[in-house]
């Protein structure tokens, strides 16, 4: 039997601490696709690239490098389901491999905790593992609950694909990877004008001024409505998911406008399509439902209850 691909699983903060349904769904989906996830014991905050990177670059890079060294111990690549964590770990890994001054400063900090950045591993996003390691064909074969007639609006977010010249993932003006993966479930793609716009949460803006952050999010929702609406919004990032999901409760409070979109991480969409019961990973624990005491629109999502 061929060896199963294995990844160090970088959880970050939002997935394990606020949206654990994403963590559970990911474990189910990776198992279904014959990929192993290894615990990264003692991993910390990535730390948030737009936040800590904005405060002090050396500290940001050193804490990120500490996380990287946990994986370097045995050499498996890292995978993470958060665009922010991906950006921090990928960028730090890249910059430390290419900027000797930074590497020297970072290793001076790591020496304090008996670690050293060696630059021996790669950082991937779940999306990479799904698209490149498992592959679209394998995913298509696993689909036992086709999302037939379910209209999916996509929110790719920013930090997986940008900066495009550095990350070299795909054309950030015409991305296709999230769309290709989502379409394996048999759902219908809903294009809308502001699909590629930021959710508004990043860069420490959500913390600086939540109303400005929510104004971005509101524009995205209005853009989806202008395109005829959607049955779900799919994203590869838990921070975007928090902003789009919990953000609806906050928009209602700050702007007096009510939206009721179901927002799914790509892992959650795949878990449903692969036949898992939504209770198996707790889809109804999204903070929007917990705070509003509501449930997902099961019928719209193609789920019989």
């Amino acid at each position: 039997m061929p060896k199963r691909p294995a990844f160090y699983h970088f959880l970050g903060c939002i997935i394990p601490h606020r949206y654990p349904s994403i963590e559970k769904a990911t474990r189910l989906v990776f198992e279904d696709l014959d990929m192993d996830l290894l615990d990264m014991e003692g991993a910390t905050c990535c730390p948030a690239p737009g936040v800590f990177g904005s405060f002090e670059r050396i500290t940001w890079a050193t804490i990120a490098a500490r996380n990287l060294t946990i994986a370097e111990e045995t050499g498996h690549p890292i995978t993470t389901g958060c665009n922010g964590c991906f950006a921090s770990l990928w960028d730090a890994n890249y910059e430390l491999k290419h900027d000797e001054d930074l590497r020297e400063a970072v290793n001076a900090g790591l020496k304090e905790i008996d670690r050293e950045f060696k630059g021996t591993i790669e950082v991937t996003h779940y999306v990479d593992a799904l698209y490149n390691t498992a592959g679209l064909e394998k995913m298509r074969k696993r689909v036992v609950r086709p999302m037939k007639g379910v209209r999916m609006a996509l929110h790719p977010g920013c930090h997986f694909m940008r900066p495009k010249l550095l990350k070299k993932k795909e054309d950030s003006e015409r991305p296709h990877i999230l769309k290709d993966i989502s379409l394996t479930t048999g759902g219908e793609y809903v294009p809308y004008k502001d699909e590629l716009m930021c959710c508004g949460a990043g860069g420490a803006v959500r913390t600086a001024d939540i109303k400005i952050a929510l104004d971005f999010t509101k524009q995205k929702f209005e853009s989806i409505q202008a395109a005829g609406g959607a049955d779900m919004i799919v994203t590869p990032c838990p921070f975007c998911e928090l902003q789009l999901d919990l953000g609806q409760v906050e928009i209602e409070k700050h702007f007096g406008v009510k939206f009721e979109f179901d927002v799914l991480h790509i892992s959650e969409l795949l878990a449903l399509a692969f036949g898992h019961d939504p209770d198996e990973f707790g889809l109804d624990t999204h903070l929007q439902y917990m705070q509003r005491k509501t449930e997902p629109h099961w019928e719209q999502l193609g789920i019989k209850r």
Partner: peptide
């Protein structure tokens, strides 16, 4: 502090 670092 209003830049979300979207990199567009």
């Amino acid at each position: 502090w209003y830049c979300t670092t979207c990199y567009t």
